[in-house]
Structures are given as structure tokens and as C-alpha cells.
Design a protein around this nucleic acid. Sequence first.
DNA 1: GATGAATGAGTCTTCATTCAT
DNA 2: TATGAATGAAGACTCATTCAT
Lengths: 239, 239, 239, 239
Amino acid sequence: MRQPDADADATHRPTRTRHTQAERRDRTKGRLLEAAVLLFSEHGYHRTQVMDIVNRARVSAGTFYRYFDDKQGIFFAIAEELSCHEVEEARKARQMVLEAADFPAAVRTMVHYLERHFERVVDRAPLYRALMNSGVVDRGRDHAWAMKEKAVCALAEQLGAAGPRDTDDLQSLARMVMGAISELRYAMIHSGKPSPADAARLATRFLQGGLTAYSTRAPRYTELHDDSWRRALDDEAPV
Amino acid sequence: MRQPDADADATHRPTRTRHTQAERRDRTKGRLLEAAVLLFSEHGYHRTQVMDIVNRARVSAGTFYRYFDDKQGIFFAIAEELSCHEVEEARKARQMVLEAADFPAAVRTMVHYLERHFERVVDRAPLYRALMNSGVVDRGRDHAWAMKEKAVCALAEQLGAAGPRDTDDLQSLARMVMGAISELRYAMIHSGKPSPADAARLATRFLQGGLTAYSTRAPRYTELHDDSWRRALDDEAPV
Amino acid sequence: MRQPDADADATHRPTRTRHTQAERRDRTKGRLLEAAVLLFSEHGYHRTQVMDIVNRARVSAGTFYRYFDDKQGIFFAIAEELSCHEVEEARKARQMVLEAADFPAAVRTMVHYLERHFERVVDRAPLYRALMNSGVVDRGRDHAWAMKEKAVCALAEQLGAAGPRDTDDLQSLARMVMGAISELRYAMIHSGKPSPADAARLATRFLQGGLTAYSTRAPRYTELHDDSWRRALDDEAPV
Amino acid sequence: MRQPDADADATHRPTRTRHTQAERRDRTKGRLLEAAVLLFSEHGYHRTQVMDIVNRARVSAGTFYRYFDDKQGIFFAIAEELSCHEVEEARKARQMVLEAADFPAAVRTMVHYLERHFERVVDRAPLYRALMNSGVVDRGRDHAWAMKEKAVCALAEQLGAAGPRDTDDLQSLARMVMGAISELRYAMIHSGKPSPADAARLATRFLQGGLTAYSTRAPRYTELHDDSWRRALDDEAPV
DNA sequence: GATGAATGAGTCTTCATTCAT
DNA sequence: TATGAATGAAGACTCATTCAT
């Protein structure tokens, strides 16, 4: 039934009992999280029962409640872990874009970020799939909406950095950017279709095009008007 | 003499009652659908109980099951009604785009379609909100995925009409287009923020820009390279 | 859907509307009874819904309650009709046995009665099957038990006619006789296996043998001690 | 050093708890079965609600479904337990009859078996009563019919052991034997009337008489033709 | 009288959570 | 601390019966 978890053991070889117990705690919690991710991913939140999780994790029902307050608890634990990571990555990417020496460098940064992001999505597809439809969970809709709004605002702010523009328009643009990326992610998870590299390149070109189109009416975005970004893309990843 | 319809009369006596009854049926079913839309919209599928629906519709529990097989039944009834309508509208819009005399006309058609679409979304926000997170419902995820795929394929095909291009790329573009629109819709429903008109214009400009950016690498899309579509937009809806 | 009921029409050709209405009442009630018999027979009482009955009878739900008080009502109506008939037949048979000129004649009477009884069972198998498990119906158990007790008592009395014997023993004998017949009936209905004629002959021989065995310890039953009854059987129905 | 069973301990810690838990399980399941038998016996299957069972067993609703799949589940569990036991007893009895030294011994064996059987019926009257009308339960009719057919075939085979006879006749005889016994059982349960001893003796005499009557037409059954079996009965249990 | 839409009490069944061992 | 048996509130669905048309 149980396969020996060689890797896990190799990383921390218990010398003291106390140490082992702490490890066991972590391992148990890890098993629960892993099980939950897989099950939420495959069947969604509501069709996954706590019993399914504990069965897969090979622990008892009671144990679950030693590690998580309730079913929602494990869901938000998963969500938190992921979103913290992604928020941080996005923040770093934005920072690098702002600090980019020239426009082509900024584009390359963006492509890089997107490609890494899509790679994470593919690597941890179950995790990402598990968190889709977060709206299903009580308070989850508001939580998800809040998270998204934060991201939208950050992105809108970045888009507006080049000059004062209509805030609402910038927000809508930010939403479209995120929506476009979101759909690629969705397809990636469900059909594995656009590879992270393809997706990153397509998305960058598409989104840059879209944003340029918007900004061309504004003289201040002249730096986007040339084709430098397109050449940047072509240099980076010649098809 | 035998009256050949003696039996027939015994079984169903078609008086005016029949008409009235039919009306009553429709009204009851309508009330149920309306109640379900509002409740699904407000609380989501799972937190809406059949009893809530029947209470709001002012009918008894049993009546619900006269019109729908089960709770999922009413959900899919709602989904079907909506998606049929939207699919048809999208089909008509695509047709008109193809038949457009020149490119500016095509753009105007698209703006029109999007604006109408967004207006429908705003008008029937609860309905659209009710159907978000369809993945929650059993089989709903597959159903939603299938619907979306059909739309993606149709759009990809249209995008590819201008010349032979990589199918996967076209699909990804189509996804991005839909994702961008989807997010606007989402924001519209949740915060009422971009008005249908604004959303339509922004989306058209953004998406055209994005698509143009993609296609500029292909010489056959030269007709998109000029600024006619931008002028079309400006004529149509000067900001 | 509806096949013209040529026979029914042939028997009573309606000349006046009033007459027709009375007839329609009867026909409707008949259709309900017929449908109920078939459905109870096939699926049993509990798995048959009033709606099934009215659907099969091609009447509306409300109509059902014009003819029967409730679901039990139609069941007991069926039971009553059948049991009245059978009770009467059994009474007549007992009478004829008592009046039989000699023992062989009595045996022949009994064979006749049993054969007729089994023929009725085969002819109206659904009806008989419908009434098995009467105990299922509220009050049905007591009703069925009461009916059976009456039959047992009558039979026991007849068995005891030849001389004073232990009442309890006679009742037990009567039960065994009825149980044996009952099982043949059951098999007949479910598998169609013993033909009425075979069943009647086998049963008579078996039961006479059993009763004789009982009574041989009593000198007064000497008339059964010889083989006349067996010869009677052989004359009647040589295998 | 690695403790190879570290993981194993984590998942199931076999202390004395395990034993106690198992006991608790058994006790709970037993209480449910006992309650169900009493209630089915008293009110029949349909008028017994799962809630009645759990209330009487002093457990919660959920506990019921830990032990049985559904309401039918507990019914068939009861039926299975009983029928397995009875089938085995019947098999042993048949075996002993076949191995009996002489005919009187065989008869004595049969009387013994029947008396034990009737004693079991009286002792566990609720259980037996609970299972009457098995036809009520979905699939129960077929199940009951199948069980009965097996018994009929086994008995028919035994009856036919003395020489080749018509299979259908033997089956019908077997049915009559079982029907006769069945009715005694029924009366015993409902009115407590024939005592197991009386019933066994009466039944043996009656059935032997009936079977003899059938077989006397077959010369091969000569050993049944004398009165040895009757003397055997008289020796065994002089009235 | 007939129709069939509407009723609503009744039941089974589920599953997140607790707690004795 | 882990276990898993027990809990019980909650919710979906049924179906005999009524009643407006």
C-alpha cells in the first residue's frame, strides 16, 4: 500500500525523537495539503470531502482538524501559499520592468516573467486548477475578488507610469491583460496546449500590441510607437 | 352511430382551460427560473437551496420537480437559454464582420456587437453572475469547457480567415481575446465599472491592437497595418 | 396510442347520453382497476404510484379520487372482488363435498374444485400476484390474516366433520393444506409451471395422503383407509 | 539508523484501543440489527423508518450509514444471516436423512430437524416475521424467489433419490412440502399456536403421508409402503 | 365530471465536525 | 497525539392528495 518515501527521508535523517516528531508533523501536514490539492484540482472544492483528503493522506479524520480549522482552512492555506508566491514574483517583475535600461530590456523582462509564470503553472497544474472557482468557497468570492483587484491596481498603476491617464481606462486595460493571460493559463492546465514559451511570446506580443494601440492616441507614449519592442521580441525568440 | 371521438373527449377535454393552464405553467416555470437566477447570482449554486428557490418563487417544493429534474436541471436550463442566445448573437456578428464592405465597417460591426453584448450583461447581470463558476456543478466544468472551446474555435477560424496561419497560435489568440472580454464582463458585473460603451471601445481598440501586433509579421495582413481601423473607431465613438 | 376497444363497444351501444355517462363511469373505473392490477402485479403495492395507475388508465390524477378514497382503497377493492369470489367458490365446493354420494365422488369434486381454482389463478395471474404480500398495505396484514383464518376454520371444520378431533390439530392440518396449495399457486404464477390439471391431481393425491396419514390413527376415519380415493383419482385422471 | 516501521506507526497505532474499538463496532452494529429486526417485525419494512431504527438503537442517523449502505442494506443483511443459517441446517438434515441406517431413523431425523427448525422460529419470531413479505423490498422478490427455488430444487432432488421420477412432479411435491411447513411457521409466529413439537410431529406425519401417497404408484418406493415410518413416529413421540 | 398544476409533510441520505479511547 | 466511531443538522427529493379551472 504505502510506498517508502525515500526522498523525504534522505533530506532529514532523524537523530532525536523530538526532532522526528516535528518532522512528522510537517510531513503529515504536507501530505494533507498535497492530497487536498490533488483532490480539489480533480473534483473541485465541493465534491471533495474531508474524508477523501484524509484517506488519500493516510491519516484519520481527527488528525485533519489538528492541522486545519476546517475544510475552508485547508483551501485558504493552499490559496495563501500560492498567491503569496505569485504576488511576490509579480512585484519583482514589475520592479525589474521599471528599472529596465531601455524598452527592449523591459520587454525581455516581461517575456521572462511570463514564461516563468507559465512554467510554474504547468509544473503545478493541479495546484492552479484547484484554485480556480475559488468563488465557490464561502468568503472565497470576496477573497478572490480582493486579490484580483490588488493585482489589477498594481498593473494599472504600472501602465499609468508613463503619464497621467484615465484611471478607469487603465484598470480596464489591466483587466484585459490579466484576462488574456488567465485564459492561456486555463487552456494550458486543461489541454496542456500552449507551451510556456509559446504562451509567453504570444501573450507579450498580443498585449504589447493592445496596449500600444491604446496609448498611440496619447503622444506621451511615443516610445512605444516605434518597433523596438517588436525587434526585442524577435531577437529574443526567433520563431 | 358511434362518435369516434368519444374516448378522445374523455381523456382530454380541450376547453379554454387548456390555454389558461398552459399560461399558468409558463408563469410558474418563469417564476422558478427567475428566483433561481437571482439566488444563484447572489449566493452561488451551492449555497442556494431548492427550498430557497421555491420560497422565493412562492411555490411548493414539489412544484419545483414538476418543471426540473433536479437542482442541476434548473442550472443547466438557465445556462442553456443564455448560451444559446449568446452563441447565436456571436454567430451573427461574425457573419456581419465577414460581409463587411471594408475594414472600417468590420470594426464598427465589432464595436456594435461588443457594446450590445456588454449591454446584455449589464441588463441581466444576475443571470451572467449566476453562471460564473459553472464548474461547481457536476458535469458543469466539462460543459463550460466545451462551450468555450466551441467559441474559441469559431473565433480562431475567423481570425485565420485572412490567411493560413498556425492553428495553435490562432487558438491562443482567440483565447486571449475571450479572456480579455471575460474580465471586462466580470468587472462590469461586480463593480458596474466600465460602461458597455466604454468597454466596447476599449476592448475593440485593445484587441485590434493585439491582433495587429501578431499579424504584422505576416505580410498578408497588410490591410490591417494602416490606421483605417483606428480612424473608424474615432469616427464612431470619439472620446 | 389508444387502441379502439372494439369488444367493449360491441357489448353496449350507447343510445342515450345519460346511459353513456354511466357506462363511461364504469369503464373509467374498470380501466383504473385493470391498470392497478397490472401494476401492483408487476411492481408490488409500494413501488406502484397513483400516478402510474392514472397514466396507464389514461385518466387524470383527480379522477382517481372520484372512484377510490385513496391508494389503499383501490387495493382493497381489488382484494375484495377477488376474495368474495373465491370464498364463495370454496363454500360451494365444501358443500358439494359434504353432499357427495360416496367418497370417490367427494374426491372427484375436490379435484374439480382445485382444477377450476388453479385455472382461475392462471387466467388472472396478475390479479393473484397483485394480492400477494397484502401484508404490505396498512391494515392489510390483519385483513389478510383474518381472511386466511376464516378459510382455515372452515376447512378445519370440514376436516373434523368425520368425528370429534383435536381442534388445534385440525387447524394445523388445514393450514398445511392451504400452504401446500398456496405454494403451487405461487409457482404457477411465477413460472407457469404446474398446469392447473397437474397441480389439481398432484395436490389432491398429496393432500389426501397427508390427511389419511393423520387420520389413520383414528379408527373412525376407516372409510379413508381403503384405496377407493386413489382409484377415484386414477379413474378421473389417469396419468 | 532508520526505523523501517516509523511510517506504519504513524498511520495505525495498534494498542488495546483497537480491540475495544472493534468491540464497540460490533456492539453498535448489533444494536442496529436488533432494532431493525424488531421494527421490521412489528411494522414491516415500509412503515419502519431509518430514524426509528437509529432511535431504538440509540445511535445517530449517520452511524446507520457507517454500517449499512442504505435501508435495503440492513434488510438484506438480516435476510442473509438468517438464510445462510437455515440453508446450512437444511443441508445437514438432508445429509443425515441420506445416511440414516434405516427408514425409521430417517423419519426420526426429519422430525428432529423440523422440531429444531420450529424452535428456532419461535425463539426468533421477530426475525422470521421481519423477513416475511420480503417481496416488498426492491429486488427482494427475486431474491426470495431465488432462495426458495434453491431449497425447492434441493428438496426435489432428495425426494427423487429413491428412483427416477418426473422432475416437475417432484418439484411440485417439494413446493407443497415447503408450503405446508411455511404455513405452520406463519401461524406459529402470529398466534404462537402449534408448539414446535406438535408442529414437527404433525408435519412429519402429514408430509410423509402425502409423499407416500404420491409414491405408492411407483413400485420402487416399496420400503415406504409398510407402516414402519408410522411406528417410528409413534415410538418417538407418542401422543 | 374531468383535468393536471400545485401542495407539503415525510424520508432518506450526506458529510463536516467532535470526542472518547 | 492519533484514531475512527459517533454525531446531527442540513438538504435533496418523493408522492399521495387537493383544488382551482
